[in-house]
């Protein structure tokens, strides 16, 4: 479904260049759970940003459902972001002035027409699915870190994406809450949603069917997890 081949990326700041990705290739199949692990500076987050279309590679190919994304227009990229992929972040990135339901409905606030009742009910349903029944009208400030991450996951799910990208989703959570989020991602993956998760934790990485290890801008190993 998603095939990245020979991806290169270099950052330049103040005249100094840093080669972050030096020819990385990763494949993600439909319904697969891929964990990307590596130390800080290994290039895993850059890789995930490129996979999720948030960043353009300098070189290489990205095939998504047979479409070459490196040659796609910005309108096509926006369409992919809108319909096919979702991203959750370590810092949740919820809008503090919107309730949980409104944050979940954010992907549908792009139009001039008001959001209908059906979509609102769908948002309640997704929030219930991630365990937030009864907290639909709370502002993010009134929710715990784990609950905020669940709202972010609900916001990602309401679009019914093909792939969910999770960038260090447990990074800001205690281990108990982190485990619960990993369990939730596994549950979602079990329903057929492909998940790509970047984590520094080898323990959480075991949730994936495939564990991709990165080191110094290169894939240092690919491990298939039978369990």
């Amino acid at each position: 479904m998603l095939n990245l081949k020979d991806i290169h990326k270099t950052y330049t700041a103040d005249g100094v260049s840093a080669k972050v990705l030096k020819g990385v290739s990763i494949d993600v199949s439909e319904g697969e759970f891929v964990s990307i692990v590596g130390k800080s500076g290994s290039g895993k987050s850059t890789m995930m940003n490129i996979m999720s279309t948030l960043l353009e590679p300098d070189d290489g190919s990205i095939l998504f459902k047979g479409r070459e994304l490196t040659k796609a227009s910005s309108a096509e990229i926006n369409s992919v972001r809108r319909n096919d992929i979702s991203v959750i972040f370590q810092a949740y990135h919820l809008f503090p002035y919107l309730t949980a339901t409104e944050n979940v409905l954010l992907p549908f606030m792009q139009g001039f027409a008001p959001i209908g009742k059906a979509l609102r009910e769908e948002a309640f349903e997704v929030l219930s699915r991630v365990g937030l029944s009864g907290k639909e009208n709370r502002l993010p400030g009134k929710l715990s870190g784990g609950e905020q991450q669940r709202v972010a996951i609900a916001r990602a799910l309401i679009k019914k994406p093909a792939v969910l990208f999770a960038d260090e989703p447990t990074g800001s959570l205690d281990s108990k809450t982190g485990n619960a989020i990993i369990d939730l991602l596994k549950e979602l993956n079990a329903t057929g949603l492909a998940v790509v998760m970047v984590t520094h934790s080898p323990e959480y990485a075991k949730a994936g069917h495939t564990i991709v290890s990165m080191e110094d801008g290169l894939v240092s190993g690919i491990e298939k997890n039978a369990g």
């Binding site: 999720s52 948030l54 910005s74 309108a75 926006n78 369409s79 992919v80 972001r81 809108r82 319909n83 991203v87 810092a91 990135h93 809008f95 954010l106 992907p107 792009q110 916001r155």
Partner: peptide, 16 residues
Amino acid sequence: RNEIGILRALGYSGGK
């Protein structure tokens, strides 16, 4: 900036 980033990640175009 974070809000803008999220909106772009959700598929909001530059025009929006």
